[in-house]
Computed example of a mutant assay.
Amino acid sequence: MRSRVTDLLLLTPLAQLGDLGLFLLRCVTGAFLIYQSHDNIISAARMDEFVKFLVQFNFWAPELMAPLSVWWQFIAGIGFIIGLLTRWLGLITAFNFIVAVWMVHWSQDFAGWWPALILAFLGLLFATLGPGRYALDSWIAKRARHDRDRTETAPAW
């Protein structure tokens, strides 16, 4: 009886859906990163606007940093959706948006920080938790464990 009450209060059965929740969070984050970066990739004029934006905020080497940032966001978006290199892309995303908070949003109020701050923390979440079950990373890890186990149990001839 006590266990059922605790489960009800803490909603512990929902933990079974943790991998699905992580998958959905990765997908919506990835879709947002693709959406916000794709126009700079397909339009030289939009990329030029972004370079000017970075110049305005005194970024080092804006002609290099603009495409680097845009392409990393785009690649991270794809990687998050399919769950490939999730931890690495999480670290890169966190770094990219921590820099954005520091260089662009620092003088703004908390609401101005919010979008970049959330993306920084989502990056840290993906870097620490990994992609969950529904990801290419998990499939690759599972295959590697299987191959390692087969190698370790194979007879030595």
Rank of each mutant, 00 (worst) to 15 (best):
W102T: 13
G112L: 08
F110R: 05
M47V: 01
A45Y: 06
G77Q: 10
F110G: 07
E49W: 06
W114C: 01
W113D: 12
N96W: 00
A94M: 15
L84K: 01
P131S: 12
V55C: 04
H105P: 05
G83L: 05
I92K: 03
A61V: 11
I78S: 00
A61M: 15
L68A: 08
A76M: 05
F121I: 13
W60S: 10
V55A: 07
L125F: 12
W71H: 00
I92R: 03
A127I: 04
P67Q: 09
N58T: 11
L64Q: 07
N58E: 15
F95M: 08
R87L: 03
L89I: 00
I75P: 00
E63W: 09
V55Y: 05
H105E: 15
R87D: 12
L125C: 10
L64T: 13
R87T: 06
P67N: 01
Q56G: 14
M103D: 13
L89Q: 09
L124F: 10
I92V: 14
G130C: 07
M103F: 10
W88A: 05
V99W: 06
M47Q: 13
I82Y: 04
I75W: 01
M47L: 12
A111S: 13
G130Y: 13
W71Q: 04
A116R: 04
I78G: 04
M103E: 14
M65T: 12
L84V: 09
G123I: 07
A127Q: 02
G79Q: 11
G79P: 12
L117Q: 09
P131I: 04
V51K: 02
L85F: 15
V70M: 07
N58G: 13
L125G: 07
M103P: 05
S107G: 15
I78M: 08
